[in-house]
Amino acid sequence: MEFMTAKEAAEKWNVSVRLIQRYCAQGRICGARKNGTAWEIPSDAEKPQNVRKVQEAYSNPPFQNLMPLMNTPFHPGDCQKLLAGMKDGARKDIAYAEYYYFSGRPEMAKQKAEEYLSCKNPELRLSACLINAFANLSIGQIDQAKQVLEAIRNTLKEDKKRAPQAGVIDAFIATTAAVLLHLPLPEEMPSAQDFLPRLPFGLRAFALYVEAHSLYLQKNYEKSIGIIESALTMGAEQYPIPAIYLHLAAVMDYMSLKQPRMAERHLLDAWELARPDDLIEGFGEHHGLLGGMLEAVIKQKWPEDFKRIIAITYKFSAGWRKIHNPETGHEVADDLSTTEFAAAMLAARGWTNTEIGEHMNISANTVKTHLSQAMKKLHVESRKDLKQYMLQ
């Protein structure tokens, strides 16, 4: 990827260098990254919108009820204290639904969110829809998940000509749902540059994770890492839920670049944020994309937590495939063990048995056995053929 300096960006967009530096520090230029004291900006980056004009478009305080727990800073270990201190009402209910979901309790998340699926407040309704859809994946209620996802898509179509704030809410929810299911974005979707600057910081941090995840799927790993590092540098760590997901996306990128040490650093950073409040759902959701990093790190040091994460993986991935595979025609493998899948992912990316074994703390012969079992289950004869059944 090619980068330009702040001065070059200022000349290109006809603004001051100081304004460009401010845009970078605020995370308003996707992919901008700091190199020492200077900012490097992707050559294809778009000029951010004028924040004052965006703010003038609002008629109400923005996004107080949209994924409130995700959008609230707290110290690791203080999540339940934060929830208990919230004022009783719909906002608190949605925050609890988030907590139940992100701590791997989809049944409780679904129950808490369900009563708001028809709520007139769009922030509460779409928050409930997002939580409910993904909770349904994990408990095997696929038809209900599909219905809620369709409701999200329909809302995006219906709200296309409504007030800017409604469009931002729709875009945030619809983009999150599509990207995390590895589905194409709806045609009505505005560009990330149109809605990202309008989000409050916590939601913007999660939206940047979604953008980074999308770039990962496009194999643009360097740009994805640039977005992640910029968001974390700006203070996303204050918001544990977005920060956990940002770190996990960095693991995906660094493993794709065959840099396991950097991947391990980000995995441990995510774990340090997640473990005090038991926010382990994201680890289970991302297992297949983490390139055996959970087996290499979490399994060795926290074996009981690893078992719970793997249980989440099996439940979530089974539902995920039932949405993803029919809609995309990409038959991601559904009958491999998590260890077989992790080894097969690495093998499909060109890792040798020795490299996989050293990374996952198992022998090369054990790797060979896992790969043989994987190929047998998938009815393929070569490592190269594994790729079509792996996550993209």
Rank of each mutant, 00 (worst) to 15 (best):
E8I: 03
E11W: 02
K12D: 06
N14K: 12
L19H: 05
I20T: 02
I20K: 04
C24A: 08
Q26R: 14
Q26E: 13
G27P: 03
I29N: 05
C30W: 11
A32V: 01
K34W: 04
W39E: 04
E40T: 08
P42D: 00
S43K: 15
E46F: 08
N50C: 10
Q55T: 14
Q55V: 15
A57G: 15
P62F: 07
L66E: 03
P68Q: 02
H75Q: 15
G77L: 04
D78M: 14
K81S: 13
D88L: 10
G89F: 03
A90W: 02
A90F: 03
K92A: 09
I94Q: 02
E98Y: 00
P106C: 05
E107C: 11
E115Q: 15
E123G: 06
R125L: 06
I131P: 04
N132Q: 06
G140D: 05
Q147L: 12
L149D: 05
N154Y: 11
L156I: 07
E158P: 08
E158L: 13
K160Y: 12
K161C: 11
R162P: 06
R162Y: 10
Q165E: 15
G167K: 14
V168E: 08
A171V: 04
A171N: 05
A174I: 07
T176I: 03
A177K: 06
H182L: 13
L183I: 01
P186L: 02
P190Q: 06
S191E: 14
A192K: 08
P197C: 07
L199N: 05
F201S: 09
A205P: 01
L208N: 10
E211V: 08
A212V: 00
Y216W: 06
I225Y: 01
G235E: 01
A236E: 01
Y239E: 01
P242G: 03
H247V: 01
M252G: 09
R261G: 13
E272V: 12
A274L: 07
E281R: 14
G284N: 07
G288P: 05
L289I: 08
L289W: 10
A296T: 02
K301D: 10
K301M: 10
D305G: 06
K307V: 12
K307H: 10
R308Y: 08
I309D: 05
I312Y: 01
Y314H: 13
K315Q: 14
S317D: 15
R321F: 00
H324N: 10
P326F: 00
E327A: 12
T328A: 00
A333P: 02
D334Q: 11
L336E: 00
S337E: 11
T338G: 10
T339L: 15
R349A: 09
E355Y: 08
E355V: 07
T366I: 07
K376I: 03
K387F: 03
M390I: 03
L391R: 11
